[in-house]
Write a protein that binds this DNA or RNA. Structure first.
Lengths: 211, 211
DNA sequence: CCGCTATATTGACGTTGTCAATATTGAATG
DNA sequence: CATTCAATATTGACAACGTCAATATAGCGG
């Protein structure tokens, strides 16, 4: 049980091939594109044979799912850092920061983001799919946070936080996807788009809508 | 020039193979999934050889792009019908109808919707990519409609309609994607989610925010 | 030192996308 | 109606792919 976690220099044959596979996968996807990714090239690039990856992943899809899961962990960490940094600030400000952080993450981690919501990963219907579990736990965390804010009076009491969370997630996901897919022309400022979106979303929560 | 447009019964060899390829592609994707789609199976199912499709499409990706484009046309038609049906009604009501119609289209035309925004279709960087042109024309139409509403006073004058259109598109796309990907658990009512979303979006346009 | 298990390799099979060369056919032209 | 030509379809071929089975190797616990 205390084997390959700290295996740095000398592991079984290769030296933590599993991590090397995950990293090289991301590198190839980023630098050469989806069509250039094959298990054979992967093995070749890492100096192992074509079927070596099968000792660590059941299939190509399984490998990609693992990358996706790593993406969710990175996402969670990134957002946690941002939230910690802006704790205690007003709701509208924080919302603006979070929206921009979300879209930034998608843009800075395009490979991960594509896989995180790739249809292949989600339609697999495998039992105990850890991807879904991970993703849903992130949503659950978000909902818990909203409920706490509500009980503190920072969020309007009559808001259905579950529904809001779904709206929030969908909105940010959609903007990120259109941005990544190149649907937005780029002539518009993404920063302004994010701020407008954040204001709209916060408008649903604001316990004291002054104006 | 006046050849295969009305080719119904007797065309060159097969009888409008192009349309048959597009239809069978959609059928396979819907009934058997993405991994079951190959040009060879496609030809076989239609009684032609494996390379016959190459007389109508440059490549497999090109075929899928054509399906995607057909999806955009279907989308535009569907939404036009809905809009026509509810012309003259109040902005909040129409927005609710349109939001539900959008998500419904995505759900009822999953194969088309997946391809319409598939990364392969958009990252191709082919010159004169008609997909991007089609999609952007839909957005432009939407923006024109908003501007007309603004000049009629049905929409608040201080709204940046371009930015709003991007927000609107992103929000609906995101909700549709999460729904199609099975990210939403299904325990929540999609109808209510759509209505809440519509209210939020209309809140950005309402020239007379009462309440 | 020995054996066991984790890891890696080689060989093989069927499938795929796509190209080149070739054949066939429908329609326009005379 | 016969000829010609471009549009359409076919066969053969090739490299690359995912994956399985059988086999080899190497490091660790006993």
């Amino acid at each position: 049980m205390t084997r390959h976690k700290l295996a740095r220099k000398t592991a079984y044959h290769h030296g933590d091939l599993k991590k090397a596979l995950l990293d090289e996968t991301v590198r190839i996807l980023r630098e050469e594109g989806e069509s250039s990714l094959s298990l054979r090239r992967l093995g070749s690039n890492l100096g192992v044979s074509r079927t070596a990856p099968y000792n660590h992943f059941d299939s190509k899809d399984s490998l990609l799912s693992s990358v996706a899961e790593e993406g969710f962990f990175r996402f969670q960490h990134t957002m946690d850092v941002v939230r910690k940094k802006h704790r205690g600030q007003s709701g509208d400000k924080v919302t603006r920061v979070l929206v921009k952080a979300y879209v930034q993450f998608a843009k800075n981690n395009e490979v991960y983001y594509n896989l995180m919501y790739g249809s292949k990963s989600w339609h697999s219907t495998r039992p105990s799919d850890s991807l879904k579990t991970t993703a849903r736990s992130i949503l659950r965390t978000e909902i818990e946070r909203l409920k706490r804010g509500q009980s503190r009076g920072q969020i309007a009491a009559d808001v259905d936080v579950v529904r809001y969370a779904h709206m929030y997630w969908g909105t940010l996901h959609g903007i990120s996807r259109l941005l990544l897919d190149g649907v937005y022309t780029g002539s518009e400022s993404i920063t302004k788009l994010c701020d407008s979106t954040a204001d709209m979303l916060w408008g649903q929560l604001d316990p004291d809508p002054a104006t």
